[in-house]
Design a binder for these strands. Sequence first.
DNA 1: TGTGAATGTAAGCACCGATTACACTAATTG
DNA 2: CAATTAGTGTAATCGGTGCTTACATTCACA
Lengths: 224, 224
Amino acid sequence: MPALPRPKHRPLRRPPPKPYHHGDLRRVLVDAALQLAERGGAAAVSVREAARRAGVSPGAPFRHFESRDALMTAVAEEAQRRFRAEIETALSEVPADQPLRRFRNFGLAYLRWAIRNPAYFEIISSGRYFDHDGAGELSRDNAELIAMSERMLAEALAQGALRTGELKPVLIAGRALVYGFARMNIDGHFRRWGVVKAETERTAEAILDLFIEGIAKRPPAAAG
Amino acid sequence: MPALPRPKHRPLRRPPPKPYHHGDLRRVLVDAALQLAERGGAAAVSVREAARRAGVSPGAPFRHFESRDALMTAVAEEAQRRFRAEIETALSEVPADQPLRRFRNFGLAYLRWAIRNPAYFEIISSGRYFDHDGAGELSRDNAELIAMSERMLAEALAQGALRTGELKPVLIAGRALVYGFARMNIDGHFRRWGVVKAETERTAEAILDLFIEGIAKRPPAAAG
DNA sequence: TGTGAATGTAAGCACCGATTACACTAATTG
DNA sequence: CAATTAGTGTAATCGGTGCTTACATTCACA
């Protein structure tokens, strides 16, 4: 049965149930947007629904985000922050003089994060929210991560650990491999033969190792 | 493209400026949807705009497609048809007893087609239009293409041309690599350092060769 | 204490997907 | 050759969306 309409008189000396000012609307909207993305993909995020969940009028979000894209950009920034933190934690576990092992940890952290945070990853990777006004930081941060991976492989090459002289194809192939796997996971290419997350992560590790074995110099034992 | 000024199927004396029946609305709608996708990505496709371009009322398309997704599925089917034709042409150029060369041609045709038909590829790959009612054929066709690539690599393995015993990681890595590159192209990861299509295709070829070299058995000269 | 900036609401715009009732045409059939 | 019927278009309408404008309320600070 429907709840009886409450008396309109404000409760005496009690904090009004709905203060005019929300207090932390921006934060709540970003969180709501993420929740919506987790449920139905980035395309299912709507400003109005986020406002609804925040218990606020449909126009209110536009005080904090000039457009839906701006909201999504904020989500992407939050995602990028967490992503980068995860990557740096993973890299801190390997000494700097082992570039190939660092590269492996980098890739593994990338894949794991993408698998465990598909909504975040979708929003980051779609690339739609990098070209807007406030997204300069996002692009720069992303470029830094790429540059880090480039440095690792350059060092590995300098140490003679790679079997190729040309670095550029290796870099792009590495990015494509890892990005492709993460996106296949998001785009439902694995749903068909129902994969659990743990198994997906093991597969991710396997293809990463395959790639590294492919670009690394073979153990000299075989070379006589 | 040459605009269709008027439908030709009413060869009566004076074709009225707007015959009540369009004649080939379904086809025109699919074409319009593709055009829209080419302009602003798959998300920019709207049934109403397609109807507008077909010179027809907003409700008309729903006589041919029960939903927007159904329209997109039709586009995906058309895309899949063309994609598969291209692949099979490419495969017909290599004899069946050279599985690794066939695999290379497969990958190359895949990448080239994805680069030259980004809108089609986005719609196919998004995976959103595979689970609907009429999409059984689409899924099946796609599964067949995957099975083909699997057979090629299995043959290569049987011939002793691969350096790994485990096929599954190689298969997934190959798919991820190629899919990842194609999607990076679509998602704008290459736009930043402005790449021409021809250059993109050369890069695609390079990473494909890198991958094949990585999984293939090294020439025994080095192992002696 | 007063005043402007910040941040909410209310109302309304255009566009969208989708449905329904109705109009017109083409094809089948008696 | 009519007459019916199935197919395909229009018109009007609904609820949802992004976004804007005008107005209301509250906060922060001079």
